[in-house]
Design a protein around this nucleic acid. Structure first.
Length: 845
RNA sequence: GGGCGUGUGGCGGAAUGGUAGACGCGAUAGACUCAAAAUCUAUUGAGGGCAACUUCAUGGGGGUUCAAGUCCCUUCACGCCUACCA
């Protein structure tokens, strides 16, 4: 009799069985009902971390459960394989990015396999493979031909020492992360996708996403940032050295027009740039203030220009160039109403501009209303505004619009915060953008027959700059149409481009066609997508855009890629510090006697906050070590227990070892019965246990569907505890117990699949547990009695077990003479009795 | 500044407006053991009582209700996201 469950033998064995019997290979039967489970695919950084374990465990529970429910399940895996870390490794360790990436993939694939995931590995994709990225090059050409991709100048972060472009996350406190140099803003001509063409649809369709977390929907909606306002023209009145007649501003608060005391232009505004040509001081101001710096004080430069107030002829308003006006929102110019906008107020105080309140709060007298250094931004009625006085904010906006529209000075305009997606990256390790710059100056796409444009092989990357620029025999080519000399685009795609359609490719990962319509129609949309909330905006929004754009290019006909979304919490761990240096968990131990945390030299260690596992804080636990020591099932069980999946999960040593104990407890219980003495069993408890099993199945189904895996785990504990009691006192029949074990092993399958198989085999189950149907609920309700709480004035005084079918008067008859109840109701008048069947009976006295 | 969310035992967490604390961890005591680990059994929100029992408890303060962790108002604390978006 083997007392211990040996995961080291068992887990590889069953993983091999599953693979040999091809149980996770998706069926081609397109008539069967389908279920597509997807976890966000990993970046092949080198090894998996606890976040991955949690993510893929959650997905695997869903996938295995749905498979047992009879669905044709698609549960694929791949690699988000382009990106910066490969280039960093190429620079710092002189490694070839391609080899580095594929070798990491090899390691991580094995690590994932050791988790026992129900993945169809035939469908594995790596986005850095030409067979993958050739299709997105083709999509890009389609987008270009349909006006959804275009080129324009835009600002990038430029590191003047490394002579390279930096991604936003590589800029730390305004400095390059490697060189430490102050980052400059530099204009470069770059490729964009017209995400803005879909602003309205991206916003409106959020409503269709019923199975998304509300907070993600709100984040997306805020990011798209729709606002409705007016574009108003202010006539330039004095010192007009330009041929520009008007300054156009965008406002959502046209009602505050009479409170205007200045206009402000962005430093990038064409008029600012024009004025700077003949104004050295302005030129200097623009240079000093054009870099984005959120902490910088509001600064302005007063130009010689004035504009006329559009509704008050005699009022002249000064024009400033100011550092807090964004060029790429609205028209890059505003009018400032200091009384009702905090930014404008700060600015007005600094430059001593007039502050005239025009909105009066309700129940306030005009004489008593003063603006000091807090702007009033709430609701109210108009004052100091001539014909608008007394109107509501909304009516005033409408009245202003009516007045100005006839003079052609105002138009209604809807603005979005959402901008077009800048795709170009001045990087080597990405998908080449399939465009050519012909010597006659025109820009043409590569002929689709010449795809893929493969990345040229390189050994490693020397410091600074994109190597594609210097590989002449790759860069120089000819135009397929004219034979003219041409140069290739040397920028590569943002890696969000690859992740915007990988879920489509999984449907037909090896087909010559990018997307096979029948497969896409069958599998899409993804039924359940699972990943970190950090992708709530960009990745999910780009993917939604991509699907809509490809739909309009007639690749398929659906609107949203992800039917259901679940965002999991982080895996956290206690941090430790000594002399301001972080210590890893292995360097720290808890001393029971001293009740202190000590390092190896018995020096007391400072216990820090519980934070997300990260290398920099050293609070990481390596999942491969955990799987080696305790097994994949233990790791999975711990990931699922206690904390609800959407919340943070704290990794603790006692947590993992108690999971391990439970796994062993189940095995001991089963093997003890099967290998033990078969005599002496009674069947007193069979009925009761079947009832518990039934309840357990009902609860688990509900909890798995709702992603309350922590509660499913509690359901299983309850069931196992009940069975174990019966095993110990042999109060259920042997056959009954074996039958329970069979069903229990199937219930365990989605959570701890290896142990499930082991039990299934031990109790003589045929075939594999993973291929069985999810156990059915028995129809009979076994327990005839239920506990009813008897309350007096809403306070529970007695809990009594009564037949389920009892009515109010029957319950009352039973309890009215109970001495506990009697003492509360005797000599009192019963005013009312409230009865909820099978729950409570409340006597109001 | 804006948005979202969370406050329940020593801890993680359960509770369609209807028995607050399921389940797990930890802790205490006992059994087994030469001893420990493992395992098993019992107890475990706080206070009072020999006891039957009883009082108080879901961040704080109000309210609605026969009944509030749950609904409403108000207030405090913490966390996350986002930010000159006119």
């Amino acid at each position: 009799m083997s007392d211990r469950y040996n995961h080291k033998i068992s887990e590889p064995f069953w993983q091999n069985e599953w693979s040999q019997k091809k149980v996770f290979e998706t069926e081609n039967d397109l008539n069967k009902k389908k279920y597509y489970v997807l976890e966000m695919f990993p970046y092949p950084s080198g090894k998996i971390h606890m976040g991955h374990i949690r993510n893929y465990t959650l997905g695997d529970v869903v996938a295995r459960y749905k498979k047992m429910q009879g669905f044709n399940v698609l549960h694929p895996m791949g690699w988000d394989a382009f990106g910066l870390p490969a280039e960093n490794a190429a620079m710092t360790e002189k490694k070839n990015p391609e080899e580095w990436t594929y070798s990491n993939i090899g390691v991580m694939r094995n690590q994932l396999k050791s988790m026992g995931l129900s993945i169809d590995w035939r469908r594995e994709i790596a986005t850095c493979h030409p067979d993958y990225y050739k299709h997105e090059q083709s999509f890009f050409i389609d987008l270009f031909n349909n006006g959804l991709a275009y080129k324009k100048n835009s600002l990038v972060n430029w590191d003047p020492i490394d002579k390279t472009v930096l991604a936003n996350e590589q800029v730390i406190d305004g400095r390059g992360w490697r060189s430490g140099a102050l980052v400059e803003q530099k204009h470069l001509s770059q490729w964009f996708l017209k995400t803005s063409a879909y602003s309205n649809e991206l916003l409106a369709d959020i409503e269709k996403l019923d199975n998304w977390p509300n907070k993600v929907k709100i984040m997306q909606s805020n990011w798209i940032g729709k606002s409705e306002g007016q574009q108003i023209k202010f006539k330039i009145s004095q010192n007009n050295t330009t041929n520009i007649e008007y300054i156009e501003i965008y406002t959502t608060r046209a009602d505050t027009l009479f409170g205007a005391s200045f206009c402000a232009l962005s430093t990038q505004h064409p008029l600012s740039i024009h004025l700077a040509k003949s104004d050295n001081k302005l030129n200097q101001f623009i240079e000093e203030n054009q870099n984005k710096d959120p902490d910088k004080e509001k600064n302005g430069y007063k130009t010689k220009l004035y504009v006329e107030h559009p509704l008050k002829k005699d009022l002249e308003i000064p024009v400033f160039v100011a550092n807090f006006i964004l060029m790429d929102y609205g028209s890059g110019a505003i009018f400032g109403c200091p009384a009702h906008d905090q930014r404008d107020l700060d600015f007005a105080i600094k430059y001593n501009l007039k502050i005239l309140p025009v909105i009066l709060p309700k129940n306030t007298k005009k004489e008593n209303f003063k603006i000091n250094n807090v702007a009033y931004t709430e609701d109210g009625t108009l004052i100091n505004s001539y014909f608008l006085d007394g109107l509501s904010i909304k009516d005033a906006q409408e009245a202003v619009y009516k007045k100005l529209k006839d003079k052609n000075l105002s138009t209604k305009k809807t603005n979005f915060k959402l901008r077009d997606w800048g795709l170009s990256r001045q990087r080597y390790w990405g998908c080449p953008i399939p465009m050519l710059y012909r010597e006659d100056g025109s820009i043409v796409p590569v002929d689709k027959n010449d795809l893929p444009v493969k990345l040229p092989k390189i050994k490693f990357i020397s410091e600074g700059g994109n190597p594609l620029n210097t590989i002449e025999n790759w860069k120089n080519t000819t135009c397929p149409l004219t034979g003219m000399k041409a140069k290739r685009e040397t920028d590569t795609f943002d890696t969000f481009f690859e992740s915007s359609w990988y879920f489509l490719r999984y449907c037909n990962p090896r087909s010559e066609e990018a997307l096979e319509k029948d497969k896409i129609d069958y599998w899409m949309p993804v039924d359940q997508y699972i990943g970190g909330v950090e992708h709530a905006i960009l990745h999910l929004l780009y993917s939604r855009f991509f699907v809509k754009a490809l739909r309009d290019l007639k690749y398929f006909n659906f609107d949203e890629p992800f039917q259901g979304l679940f965002t999991q919490g982080m895996v956290t761990h206690q941090t430790y510090k000594l002399n301001k240096k972080w210590l890893s968990p292995e360097e720290v131990r808890y001393d029971e006697i001293q009740k202190k945390y000590l390092n190896e030299k018995n020096v007391e260690v400072e216990v820090g906050k519980i934070e997300k596992m990260s290398k920099s804080k050293k609070n990481v636990v390596d999942p491969t070590e955990i799987i080696k020591t305790y097994g994949a099932d233990t790791a999975r069980w711990f990931m699922l227990s206690d904390s609800p999946p959407e919340r943070d999960l704290e990794w603790t040593d006692v947590g993992i070892s108690s999971s391990y104990k439970f796994i062993n407890r189940i095995w001991r219980m089963v093997s003890g019965v099967v290998d033990g003495d078969k005599s002496g069993y009674s069947d007193d408890n069979n009925k009761n246990l079947n009832s518990k099993l039934n309840t357990c199945i009902i609860n688990i189904e509900k909890n798995v569907e709702e992603f309350h895996f922590n509660k499913s785990i509690a359901n299983i504990y309850e069931l196992v505890n009940n069975i174990q009691k019966a095993v110990e006192n042999k109060s259920a029949s042997y056959e009954g117990l074996i039958d329970l074990f069979k069903k229990m092993s199937l219930i365990l399958q989605p959570f701890v699949p290896h142990l499930s198989e082991e039990i299934w085999r031990k109790v003589g189950g045929k075939g594999l547990a993973v291929s069985q149907k999810w156990p059915e609920k028995t129809k009979e309700v076994i327990e005839t009695n239920t506990k009813t709480a008897i309350q007096i004035n809403g306070k529970t005084r007695l809990i009594i077990s009564l037949p389920r079918k009892y009515k109010e008067n029957e319950v009352f008859e039973v309890i009215k003479n109970d001495k506990k109840i009697d003492k509360y109701i005797k000599n009192k008048k019963i005013k009312k009795i409230i009865f909820v069947p099978e729950k409570i009976l409340n006597i109001v006295v």
